[in-house]
Amino acid sequence: MGDFLSQFAELFANYDVLGAFWVNIQLTFWAAIFSLILGTVLALMRISPIASLQWAGTAYVNILRNTPLTIIMTFMFLAVWTQLQIRMSDDFATNFFRFAVIGLTVYHAAFVCEAIRSGVNTVPLGQAEAARAIGLPFLPAARLIILPQAFRGAIAPLGNTLIALLKNSTVAAAASVSTETSTLMREMIESNSDLIYAIFMTFAIGFVILVIPIGLLTTYLSNRLAVRR
């Protein structure tokens, strides 16, 4: 046992496990912000009265939601970076990190949009009617009455999207972000195959530790902020 522990400690000294998790957290952080913005815009398009915007929003969601994230990430590297020769930075690490954030953003924005739209559907008809009755046009009504309630109703699905985003940030490996967890785990196992279970459990528990608080917070917030009706 002592032997195992010392081997395990040595492994941690040689590999930057926390650093890898930090990369995933950073990916998640930026992609969460951008996909929240893009997703809100898409949701507004889908609930607007303007047919062309509705159509564009629906098309975006249906296309991106049905495309595997791995294809989007591979596309970022092979098609956008390699074939179209678009660079986000001259530094490789920054370049691929930004591509991964873009890939994660465009994919998860579709789910954020659906989450917000489902939130909009929790707002009772009377609220919109009341807003119109006091003379608010569409945008002010959306901003002041509908969206604040919709975001509260959307907390649970948004939280689930955030959890999915955190776990999906490991797919950044397909966009050549080589410092994140899935790549590091593979490297560690390949050179220390006798510790395969311990290494996997380390990474798995790391994700459990990150995911459970988000889940608890989501449940807490959605209960606390739910509009009582």
Binding site: F77, L78, W81, T82, Q83, Q85, R87, D91, F92, F96, S176, S178
Partner: peptide, 20 residues
């Protein structure tokens, strides 16, 4: 040297011909 790693050599060559 700045290093990028891909699963196959062919992808590297594509990146090379593209000047990346």
């Amino acid at each position: 040297v700045q290093l990028v790693e891909r699963p196959g050599y062919a992808e590297c060559v594509t990146a090379l011909t593209a000047g990346q």
